[in-house]
Amino acid sequence: MTDNSSVIRLEDISYSYPGSNTNVLDHLNLEINKGDRIGMMAPNGSGKTTLLHTIMGLCKPESGTIEVFGKLLKNEKDFIPVRSKIGLLFQDSDDQLFCPTVLDDVAFGPLNLGFSPQDAIDTARNTLERLGIQILEGHVTHRLSGGQKRLVALAAVLAMEPEVLLLDEPTAGLDHKVKEKLIHILNSLDISYFVISHEFDFAKAVTDKIYSMEDGKILRDDEIHIHRHEHVHKHGRHPHNHK
Protein backbone atom coordinates (compact mmCIF):
# COMPACT_ATOMS: atom_id res chain seq x y z
CA MET A 1 0.00 0.00 0.00
CA THR A 2 1.42 3.38 -0.88
CA ASP A 3 1.30 6.23 1.55
CA ASN A 4 -1.62 7.88 -0.14
CA SER A 5 -3.79 4.87 -0.77
CA SER A 6 -7.46 5.13 0.02
CA VAL A 7 -8.57 3.42 3.19
CA ILE A 8 -12.27 4.19 3.10
CA ARG A 9 -14.12 5.31 0.03
CA LEU A 10 -17.85 6.03 0.00
CA GLU A 11 -19.48 6.77 -3.32
CA ASP A 12 -22.95 8.08 -3.94
CA ILE A 13 -24.28 6.88 -0.58
CA SER A 14 -27.93 7.62 0.23
CA TYR A 15 -29.66 6.70 3.44
CA SER A 16 -32.93 7.65 5.07
CA TYR A 17 -34.38 6.42 8.31
CA PRO A 18 -37.29 4.03 8.02
CA GLY A 19 -40.53 6.00 7.89
CA SER A 20 -38.82 9.24 6.88
CA ASN A 21 -38.83 10.84 3.45
CA THR A 22 -35.77 13.03 3.76
CA ASN A 23 -32.38 11.56 3.07
CA VAL A 24 -29.98 11.88 6.00
CA LEU A 25 -27.20 11.01 3.59
CA ASP A 26 -27.86 12.19 0.08
CA HIS A 27 -25.55 10.93 -2.68
CA LEU A 28 -22.64 11.45 -0.35
CA ASN A 29 -19.02 10.93 -1.33
CA LEU A 30 -16.18 10.59 1.12
CA GLU A 31 -12.64 9.38 0.87
CA ILE A 32 -10.29 8.78 3.76
CA ASN A 33 -6.69 8.11 2.80
CA LYS A 34 -3.89 6.59 4.77
CA GLY A 35 -2.47 9.10 7.21
CA ASP A 36 -5.47 11.40 7.03
CA ARG A 37 -6.53 13.19 10.18
CA ILE A 38 -9.91 14.60 9.36
CA GLY A 39 -12.25 16.54 11.61
CA MET A 40 -15.96 16.86 11.04
CA MET A 41 -17.97 19.74 12.43
CA ALA A 42 -21.62 19.93 11.57
CA PRO A 43 -24.90 20.73 13.31
CA ASN A 44 -26.80 18.14 15.30
CA GLY A 45 -28.95 15.87 13.22
CA SER A 46 -26.97 16.41 10.04
CA GLY A 47 -26.17 12.71 9.75
CA LYS A 48 -22.66 12.49 11.16
CA THR A 49 -23.30 9.46 13.34
CA THR A 50 -25.27 7.80 10.55
CA LEU A 51 -22.27 8.32 8.31
CA LEU A 52 -19.96 6.51 10.74
CA HIS A 53 -22.47 3.70 11.22
CA THR A 54 -22.76 3.33 7.46
CA ILE A 55 -19.01 2.90 7.17
CA MET A 56 -19.17 0.14 9.80
CA GLY A 57 -22.08 -1.55 8.07
CA LEU A 58 -24.48 -0.89 10.94
CA CYS A 59 -26.78 1.15 8.66
CA LYS A 60 -27.52 -0.30 5.26
CA PRO A 61 -27.50 2.46 2.63
CA GLU A 62 -30.19 2.48 -0.06
CA SER A 63 -27.74 3.26 -2.82
CA GLY A 64 -24.04 3.74 -3.37
CA THR A 65 -20.92 1.72 -2.73
CA ILE A 66 -18.67 1.34 0.27
CA GLU A 67 -15.08 0.40 -0.35
CA VAL A 68 -12.70 -0.30 2.52
CA PHE A 69 -9.03 -1.14 1.89
CA GLY A 70 -9.90 -1.40 -1.78
CA LYS A 71 -12.54 -4.07 -1.20
CA LEU A 72 -16.16 -3.55 -2.11
CA LEU A 73 -18.44 -4.30 0.85
CA LYS A 74 -21.93 -5.50 0.06
CA ASN A 75 -23.40 -7.59 2.83
CA GLU A 76 -22.99 -8.26 6.53
CA LYS A 77 -20.44 -10.98 5.83
CA ASP A 78 -18.11 -8.59 4.00
CA PHE A 79 -18.19 -6.17 6.90
CA ILE A 80 -17.15 -8.63 9.62
CA PRO A 81 -13.40 -8.74 8.84
CA VAL A 82 -13.37 -5.01 8.16
CA ARG A 83 -14.81 -4.07 11.55
CA SER A 84 -11.72 -5.20 13.37
CA LYS A 85 -9.60 -2.93 11.16
CA ILE A 86 -11.75 0.13 11.75
CA GLY A 87 -12.19 1.24 15.34
CA LEU A 88 -15.38 3.13 16.11
CA LEU A 89 -15.61 5.06 19.36
CA PHE A 90 -19.27 5.49 20.25
CA GLN A 91 -20.86 8.68 21.48
CA ASP A 92 -21.98 7.07 24.73
CA SER A 93 -19.22 5.03 26.37
CA ASP A 94 -21.80 3.09 28.37
CA ASP A 95 -22.88 1.46 25.10
CA GLN A 96 -19.38 0.29 24.47
CA LEU A 97 -18.32 -1.02 27.84
CA PHE A 98 -20.43 -4.07 28.50
CA CYS A 99 -18.06 -6.43 30.27
CA PRO A 100 -17.92 -6.59 34.07
CA THR A 101 -14.37 -5.32 34.48
CA VAL A 102 -12.13 -2.98 32.53
CA LEU A 103 -9.65 -5.71 31.63
CA ASP A 104 -12.45 -7.99 30.39
CA ASP A 105 -13.73 -5.19 28.24
CA VAL A 106 -10.44 -4.20 26.67
CA ALA A 107 -9.65 -7.87 26.02
CA PHE A 108 -13.06 -8.53 24.43
CA GLY A 109 -11.93 -7.43 20.97
CA PRO A 110 -8.62 -9.33 20.93
CA LEU A 111 -10.43 -12.48 22.15
CA ASN A 112 -12.87 -12.17 19.27
CA LEU A 113 -9.92 -11.86 16.92
CA GLY A 114 -8.81 -15.28 18.11
CA PHE A 115 -6.10 -14.32 20.61
CA SER A 116 -5.42 -16.77 23.41
CA PRO A 117 -6.57 -15.52 26.84
CA GLN A 118 -2.99 -14.79 27.89
CA ASP A 119 -2.22 -12.85 24.70
CA ALA A 120 -5.49 -10.98 25.00
CA ILE A 121 -4.64 -9.99 28.58
CA ASP A 122 -1.17 -8.87 27.51
CA THR A 123 -2.55 -6.80 24.64
CA ALA A 124 -5.19 -5.27 26.91
CA ARG A 125 -2.63 -4.42 29.59
CA ASN A 126 -0.27 -2.87 27.04
CA THR A 127 -3.05 -0.74 25.63
CA LEU A 128 -4.14 0.42 29.08
CA GLU A 129 -0.56 1.27 29.87
CA ARG A 130 -0.18 3.20 26.64
CA LEU A 131 -3.11 5.38 27.64
CA GLY A 132 -1.79 5.66 31.19
CA ILE A 133 -4.82 4.06 32.81
CA GLN A 134 -3.37 0.73 33.89
CA ILE A 135 -4.59 1.29 37.45
CA LEU A 136 -8.18 0.94 36.24
CA GLU A 137 -7.55 -2.63 35.12
CA GLY A 138 -9.57 -4.42 37.80
CA HIS A 139 -12.26 -1.76 38.15
CA VAL A 140 -15.91 -2.48 37.51
CA THR A 141 -16.87 -0.67 34.30
CA HIS A 142 -20.15 0.86 35.40
CA ARG A 143 -18.59 2.49 38.43
CA LEU A 144 -16.04 4.49 36.43
CA SER A 145 -16.38 8.24 35.98
CA GLY A 146 -17.38 9.65 32.60
CA GLY A 147 -13.80 10.55 31.66
CA GLN A 148 -12.45 7.17 32.74
CA LYS A 149 -15.19 5.43 30.74
CA ARG A 150 -14.22 7.35 27.60
CA LEU A 151 -10.54 6.46 27.98
CA VAL A 152 -11.32 2.80 28.64
CA ALA A 153 -13.63 2.72 25.61
CA LEU A 154 -10.80 4.18 23.54
CA ALA A 155 -8.44 1.55 24.93
CA ALA A 156 -10.96 -1.14 24.01
CA VAL A 157 -11.02 0.13 20.45
CA LEU A 158 -7.23 0.56 20.20
CA ALA A 159 -6.60 -2.92 21.61
CA MET A 160 -7.83 -4.34 18.32
CA GLU A 161 -5.05 -2.44 16.59
CA PRO A 162 -7.27 -0.81 14.00
CA GLU A 163 -5.87 0.91 10.92
CA VAL A 164 -8.44 3.69 11.03
CA LEU A 165 -10.25 5.27 13.95
CA LEU A 166 -13.70 6.78 13.72
CA LEU A 167 -14.48 8.92 16.76
CA ASP A 168 -17.99 10.11 17.45
CA GLU A 169 -17.83 13.23 19.62
CA PRO A 170 -15.03 11.95 21.81
CA THR A 171 -14.98 15.07 23.98
CA ALA A 172 -18.70 15.28 24.75
CA GLY A 173 -19.19 15.76 28.47
CA LEU A 174 -15.51 15.67 29.35
CA ASP A 175 -13.60 18.14 31.45
CA HIS A 176 -10.55 20.05 30.37
CA LYS A 177 -8.05 17.58 31.79
CA VAL A 178 -9.43 14.52 30.03
CA LYS A 179 -9.71 16.54 26.82
CA GLU A 180 -6.03 17.44 27.03
CA LYS A 181 -5.23 13.80 27.55
CA LEU A 182 -7.30 12.80 24.51
CA ILE A 183 -5.53 15.40 22.39
CA HIS A 184 -2.20 14.04 23.54
CA ILE A 185 -3.22 10.44 22.83
CA LEU A 186 -4.65 11.18 19.39
CA ASN A 187 -1.61 13.18 18.37
CA SER A 188 0.68 10.34 19.38
CA LEU A 189 -1.18 7.78 17.22
CA ASP A 190 0.22 6.98 13.84
CA ILE A 191 -3.00 5.77 12.27
CA SER A 192 -5.52 7.75 10.28
CA TYR A 193 -8.68 8.92 11.96
CA PHE A 194 -11.91 10.75 11.41
CA VAL A 195 -13.23 12.78 14.33
CA ILE A 196 -16.69 14.21 14.80
CA SER A 197 -16.61 17.07 17.24
CA HIS A 198 -18.49 20.19 18.12
CA GLU A 199 -15.46 21.78 19.66
CA PHE A 200 -13.39 23.88 17.40
CA ASP A 201 -10.31 23.97 19.63
CA PHE A 202 -10.27 20.21 19.98
CA ALA A 203 -10.82 19.56 16.29
CA LYS A 204 -8.09 22.04 15.42
CA ALA A 205 -5.65 20.45 17.84
CA VAL A 206 -5.97 16.91 16.55
CA THR A 207 -6.75 17.19 12.82
CA ASP A 208 -5.19 18.52 9.64
CA LYS A 209 -8.39 19.35 7.80
CA ILE A 210 -11.95 19.95 8.80
CA TYR A 211 -15.01 18.88 6.85
CA SER A 212 -18.61 19.75 7.42
CA MET A 213 -21.95 18.30 6.37
CA GLU A 214 -24.97 19.94 4.85
CA ASP A 215 -28.08 18.44 3.26
CA GLY A 216 -26.61 14.95 3.52
CA LYS A 217 -23.44 15.88 1.67
CA ILE A 218 -19.87 16.46 2.77
CA LEU A 219 -18.42 19.94 2.49
CA ARG A 220 -14.66 20.10 2.22
CA ASP A 221 -12.12 22.54 3.59
CA ASP A 222 -12.24 24.85 0.62
CA GLU A 223 -16.03 25.05 0.71
CA ILE A 224 -16.43 25.96 4.35
CA HIS A 225 -14.95 28.56 6.57
CA ILE A 226 -15.22 27.54 10.15
CA HIS A 227 -13.44 30.09 12.23
CA ARG A 228 -13.73 31.86 15.47
CA HIS A 229 -13.14 35.45 16.33
CA GLU A 230 -13.61 37.01 19.66
CA HIS A 231 -13.84 40.74 19.82
CA VAL A 232 -15.08 43.57 21.92
CA HIS A 233 -16.69 46.72 20.64
CA LYS A 234 -19.12 49.24 21.92
CA HIS A 235 -22.10 47.99 19.93
CA GLY A 236 -21.61 44.49 21.24
CA ARG A 237 -24.91 44.53 23.06
CA HIS A 238 -26.90 45.24 19.93
CA PRO A 239 -27.47 42.79 17.14
CA HIS A 240 -25.04 43.47 14.33
CA ASN A 241 -23.59 41.91 11.19
CA HIS A 242 -20.03 41.40 10.12
CA LYS A 243 -19.29 41.96 6.51
Binding site: M56, L58, F90, D95, G109, N112, L113, I121, A156
Partner: peptide
Protein backbone atom coordinates in the same frame (compact mmCIF):
# COMPACT_ATOMS: atom_id res chain seq x y z
CA UNK B 1 -29.56 1.05 24.41
CA UNK B 2 -29.65 -2.68 23.67
CA UNK B 3 -29.45 -1.88 19.97
CA UNK B 4 -26.46 0.39 20.45
CA UNK B 5 -24.68 -2.11 22.67
CA UNK B 6 -25.21 -4.80 20.05
CA UNK B 7 -23.76 -2.49 17.41
CA UNK B 8 -20.77 -1.77 19.63
CA UNK B 9 -20.24 -5.50 20.07
CA UNK B 10 -20.43 -6.10 16.33
CA UNK B 11 -17.85 -3.37 15.81
CA UNK B 12 -15.45 -5.24 18.01
CA UNK B 13 -15.75 -8.49 16.18
CA UNK B 14 -18.42 -10.20 18.27
CA UNK B 15 -19.42 -13.46 16.61
CA UNK B 16 -21.97 -14.98 19.00
CA UNK B 17 -19.24 -16.77 20.88
CA UNK B 18 -18.38 -16.28 24.47
CA UNK B 19 -14.70 -15.85 25.16
CA UNK B 20 -13.32 -15.46 28.58
CA UNK B 21 -10.11 -14.37 30.17
CA UNK B 22 -10.12 -16.61 33.21
Amino acid sequence: RAQRVHQAMLCRGFNQKFHTLD
